[in-house]
């Protein structure tokens, strides 16, 4: 079954180079990718993820607000009874990685992460969920 991914921008961060490039790289790897567009709230992302019936949600965050916003997306999904895993890509300092994991973020991809690494992680998460 084809893996479906929602890529999303939450909050006010308009940097959309990374998210667009990653979306195309995931498509190249055979996944179906849906993009929310800019300036979404955590609630909007959770609703779209459920409506689109995606396997994973990828958030792109470069403004430093990841510790505030990423947990809210996870919470919004769980509050709706969804266990869709949430990934974050962007600028996340090393010191924040533990907090991100505690908040339920399944993986973080920093600057320079390769397409191969992202595809491998997503495949593993989806296989884990299906197993």
């Amino acid at each position: 079954m084809t893996i479906r991914v929602l890529v999303a921008k939450v909050g006010l961060d308009g940097h959309d180079r990374g998210i667009k490039v990653v979306a195309r790289l995931l498509r190249d790897a055979g996944m179906e990718v849906v993009y929310t567009g800019l300036f979404q709230t955590p609630e909007m992302v959770a609703n779209t993820a459920i409506q689109e019936d995606v396997n994973v949600v990828g958030l792109s965050m470069l403004s430093g607000a990841h510790l505030t916003l990423a947990p809210l997306v996870v919470e919004a999904l769980r509050a709706k009874g969804s266990d869709i895993p949430v990934l974050v890509g962007g600028i996340v300092p090393h010191n924040d990685l533990d907090d991100m994991a505690r908040a339920g973020v399944a993986a973080v991809f920093g600057p320079g992460a390769s397409a191969e690494e992202m595809v491998r992680t997503i495949n593993a998460l989806v296989e884990g969920a299906r197993a």
């Binding site: 909050g11 006010l12 300036f39 709230t41 403004s63 505030t68």
Partner: peptide, 22 residues
């Protein structure tokens, strides 16, 4: 910061987590 760039006050709900960051 991002809220200022988008013309939002620091107490706007959309500004949460972004005030003074960038």
């Amino acid at each position: 910061d991002m809220p200022t760039l988008l013309g939002l006050d620091s107490d706007d709900p959309m500004a949460l987590g972004e005030v003074g960051r960038c």
